[in-house]
Design a binder for these strands. Structure first.
Length: 896
DNA sequence: CACTCCCGCCAATTA
DNA sequence: TAATTGGCGGGAGTG
């Protein structure tokens, strides 16, 4: 055997592929570097295809043999190393050359070289931390396994953990999509919230005991945990089950990873010992802790810890207790999300560890969102939820039929997350009370349901999110749907996305459904601003009920709903929030916004408590929204915010916006979000705006609505169409400056502003107007807000065939968020809106719509100018920008 | 010896 | 049924 090996080693391996060679080479080549020499060697295979392929082949071929023997492993190993070239190996090799068996041993790199942590680093090194939204990176498990020279099993370990944090999502069999860390903070936030719910008590209570070291102060709970844990578990499981029915398989690694992370996030000391964690995690299962079980759990925790360490989220430490020193891990990642401005935090910590890559990019955050979305489809599975949908559901599907399925997993994850979030949320609700309840509830439901939901809402996949506001009235069912959709956060992105998907599908129907009557607003991403005329001054903070308007915005805000994931039921409708409030005008009024981010959900919950005020508003309905604002304002949103805040946000002037159409752009420097809000205040004129920020980073947009706005103003502009009285503006946060989008009912003009590059981002967005029905519904969607910034140029492609009416489609595309406004909706005054409505019917076609061009608009600023462009009536218009882009759609319709 | 955790069998799921 | 996933725990490497 030995001989065989040797011989083969030398020659063979090396040959083929690059990396491999190394190891082998040593044999051949004295030196360490195998690199050169080898290639030649053997036969390459007949088919060269790709380099990778060859490798794979080799590997595979080799492996079997090797195995038989034993050594094989070793061989492989080298491979791994090869890239980096592990030194050790080389040495050994040399030595080994002659010798024989030993070689094997020697060669083998040593356990460390094969460690999961190292492998994970190699894996991570292959992908950018903050990929551009546009690019969607798919990961082929086989390929990666062969490239890294490891068995696929190991890749699963890595991917499962990454998936639990949403750094990747499963797209299909053997295929994962890389999202990077854009959503990481959101995910962590969710986990933190969920963790607080589940484990918080424990901490508080401090069961701690045993294991932990007091010293550190960890909390650990252990014993009692069961009960608590359970809840979580339950939640999660249920979700899963119910929702996707997924398998339970998820059970372990993924869930365990999330729980493990939760423990860190909840822990004050940020240090968790393995044994404590193991106990806690076991409980879920049962109390009996049998030793073996414990051991197994610990093994798994090491696996997870290795991956998390590679991610730079934790590091190993030792805690000494009375008993002695125990292994423990300390969280070194971001901690922030909690409330406040967390955003910031995010990066830094994280980044540190990270490789160079990109850390900086917060901005990307947003963008990334888009990427996430990938999922697309929800499966139709609608089955899931009957509820709401009943009606709406659409058939579905839209577009992409491809894979969706996979989504399930994602769903699961998402769902889990969602569940957690939901839980949190609920709590919050409780706390807060009802006010928002509806909303929340809705949200919750949404989450669950979302998947199924038909509605349009769409979630945005990525971050974006949107809000939907249903009108009060209509709300109901529809709402539900909406809600859900929106929820997705993020992150879940992916998952979320999935949910979205459904939404999307809905969309189809959706359109109709969506909003048929009601208007909704969706805001994508996190950041949105809403302005309401009513607002009183200030911001958000108080929403003042008084203004009915405010109310409108309300609640929805909730953004909370993160959850999309689950399908569960959603029953509630979201709409609600507003509803209660006032009634102002009926429909119109209420609108709410929602945001959804994943994070949101998390956020939301918190908020509530925090900001009761907002709630107070409740009456009006505002609550949700309000509080969102608050959050934002106050805290800043957690997630991405930073960026957004910083920059972006700018609200541009309202006025302008109002005007709208235009967006303004860039220039304006609006103050930070906060400022903005203030601005609002300041600007009294405008008073009414709501600003919503995105929580997450996304944020790309902000929306402003003016309540009062004359609609006319806005609308007019361009199109004239119609209608919409309400003007809205979206501003990308990131871009801030860049542009806001405005939608007016018709949308018309607003966009124009975009022109700038910034807009380009915008570009992504698309607008479409449909004639559909409502008088003026507008949809705006954005998806990825993020994108925009990034690419200005983008172009979009458009494409997709759009569906006419649909806003939906867009959704699918990903991005989308749509807002529709009916007249009512708008925040501001509905009334106005109504009026607006307008006219329009005609609109649709009007002028110019250029269908195709839309893209252009986006892209080019210049184009924007044209009103025409804006309009597109046809269905097709939709375009999608690439994933990245976001689109806006507006429909105007008129009834004719 | 205790801590780590690699490795891969094999069951559960999927395709 | 074959392939993919992933739980699980033996037992080896490290210190």
């Amino acid at each position: 055997e030995n001989i065989y090996d040797r011989s083969r080693m030398a020659p063979k391996t090396p040959i083929k592929n690059e990396p491999i060679d190394l190891s082998k080479q040593k044999g051949c080549t004295p030196e360490r570097n195998p690199i050169t020499p080898v290639k030649i060697i053997d036969r390459p295979q007949p088919d060269p295809w790709t380099p990778t392929t060859n490798l794979k082949i080799l590997v595979s071929a080799a492996s079997p043999d090797m195995r038989d023997r034993e050594k094989k492993k070793e061989l492989f190993r080298p491979i791994e190393n090869s890239e980096q070239s592990d030194i050790p190996d080389l040495l050994q090799y040399d030595i080994v050359d002659d010798s024989t068996v030993d070689e094997f041993e020697k060669q083998r790199p040593s356990r460390k070289q094969k460690s999961l942590g190292l492998l994970c680093q190699k894996f991570l090194a292959r992908y950018p931390n903050y990929p551009l939204s546009t690019e969607k990176t798919t990961i082929s498990l086989d390929e990666v396994a062969s490239i890294l020279g490891v068995e696929r099993r190991r890749i699963y370990d890595i991917v499962n953990v990454l998936e639990s944090l949403q750094l990747v999502s499963r797209v299909a069999k053997n295929q994962y999509c890389w999202h990077g860390r854009h959503n990481l903070s959101q995910t962590l936030k969710m986990l933190q919230e969920a963790g607080e719910l589940q484990y918080g008590e424990l901490m508080t209570s401090q069961h701690k005991e045993q294991d932990l070291e007091y010293k550190f102060g960890d909390r650990k709970k252990e014993t009692s945990p069961d009960s608590q844990d359970r809840p979580l578990l339950d939640f999660s499981e249920p979700d899963c089950t119910s929702a996707s029915a997924n398998s339970r398989k998820d059970k372990s690694l993924r869930i365990m990873s999330q729980k493990f992370v939760m423990l860190f996030l909840v822990s004050k000391t940020k240090i968790v010992t393995l044994d404590v964690a193991a106990k806690i995690l076991i409980e879920e299962t049962q109390d009996t802790v049998d030793h073996s079980k414990f051991k197994t759990k610990v093994r798994r925790l090491y696996d997870i810890a290795n991956v998390l360490t590679s991610l730079g989220l934790i590091k190993k430490v030792h805690v000494t207790e009375e008993r002695g020193r125990k292994p423990a891990f300390k969280w070194i990642g971001p901690v922030e999300f909690p409330e406040k401005t967390d955003e910031l935090r995010g990066h830094s910590p994280t980044s540190d560890p990270l490789p160079e890559t990109q850390r900086g990019a917060y901005a990307q955050y947003q963008t990334s969102a888009t990427g996430k979305k990938k999922f697309t489809r929800h499966s139709s599975f609608s089955s899931a939820q009957p509820c709401e949908a009943t009606r709406r559901k659409v058939s579905s599907e839209p577009n992409s039929p491809h894979q969706e399925r996979q989504g399930n997993e994602a769903y699961e994850n998402c769902s889990k997350m969602i569940n957690l979030a939901a839980v949190c949320r609920q709590k919050i609700q409780e706390d807060t009370g009802n006010k928002a309840c509806d909303t929340e509830t809705i949200l919750n439901s949404a989450k669950n349901s979302n998947i199924s939901l038909p509605f349009s809402l769409l979630p945005v996949p990525g971050d974006s999110d949107f809000c939907v506001n249903p009108l009060p009235q209509a709300v109901f069912p529809v709402v539900q749907a909406d809600v859900p959709s929106f929820s997705l956060p993020n992150g879940i992105s992916s998952q979320a996305s999935h949910p979205s998907m459904p939404a999307v599908s809905k969309t189809e129907n959706g359109k109709p459904t969506l909003v048929p009557n009601q208007p909704f607003l969706c805001f994508p991403s996190s950041s949105l601003f809403m302005l309401c005329g009513g607002l009183q001054e200030n911001n958000v903070s108080e929403p003042l009920p008084a203004a009915g308007d405010l109310a409108n915005r309300s609640a929805e805000a909730q953004a909370a709903a993160p959850p999309p994931a689950c399908q569960k039921r959603s029953s509630r409708k979201c709409s609600s929030p507003s509803a209660p409030a006032d009634d102002e005008e009926p429909a119109a009024k209420k609108q709410t916004l929602e945001h959804s981010d994943l994070p949101l959900s998390l956020v939301v919950p918190k908020k509530p408590p925090e900001s009761p005020k907002a709630e107070s508003c409740p009456g009006s309905g505002c609550s949700a929204a309000v509080y969102l604002e608050k959050n934002r304002l106050g805290l800043a949103s957690p997630a991405a915010p930073e960026v957004a805040n910083k920059e972006s946000t700018k609200p541009l002037d309202c006025q302008e916006q109002e005007k709208q159409s235009q967006n303004k752009d860039p220039g304006e420097p609006p103050p930070g979000n906060e400022h903005i809000s203030k601005e609002n205040a300041n600007q009294p004129f405008q008073p009414q705006y709501l600003y919503v920020q995105p929580t997450a980073g996304l944020s790309s947009f902000n929306f402003l609505f003016s309540a009062n706005q004359a609609p006319g103003a806005i609308s007019l502009a361009a199109n004239q169409l119609p209608s919409l009285s309400v003007p809205c503006v979206m501003v990308p946060s990131a871009a801030l400056a860049s542009f806001p989008l405005v939608c007016s009912p018709s949308f018309t003009s607003p966009l124009s502003s975009v022109p700038d590059g910034s807009f380009s981002a915008a570009a992504s967005t698309s607008f479409s107007v449909s004639s559909l029905a409502s008088p003026t519904p507008v949809f705006v969607s954005t998806t990825a807000v993020v994108t925009p910034k990034v690419s200005p140029t983008p172009s979009v492609d458009p494409q997709q065939p759009a569906h006419p009416a649909l806003h939906l489609s867009p959704v699918l595309t990903r991005s989308c968020s749509a807002v529709k406004l009916d007249s009512p909706v708008c925040m501001g005054h509905p009334v106005t809106l109504l009026k607006l409505q307008q006219p329009s019917s005609a609109p649709l076609t009007p002028k110019s719509i250029r269908p195709a061009h839309h893209e252009a608009f986006f892209k080019t600023p210049g184009s924007l100018g044209d009103p025409v462009a804006w309009k597109k009536n046809e269905g097709n218009q939709t375009r999608n920008a690439s994933s990245v882009q976001r689109r806006l759609e507006i429909s105007s319709t008129s009834p004719d």
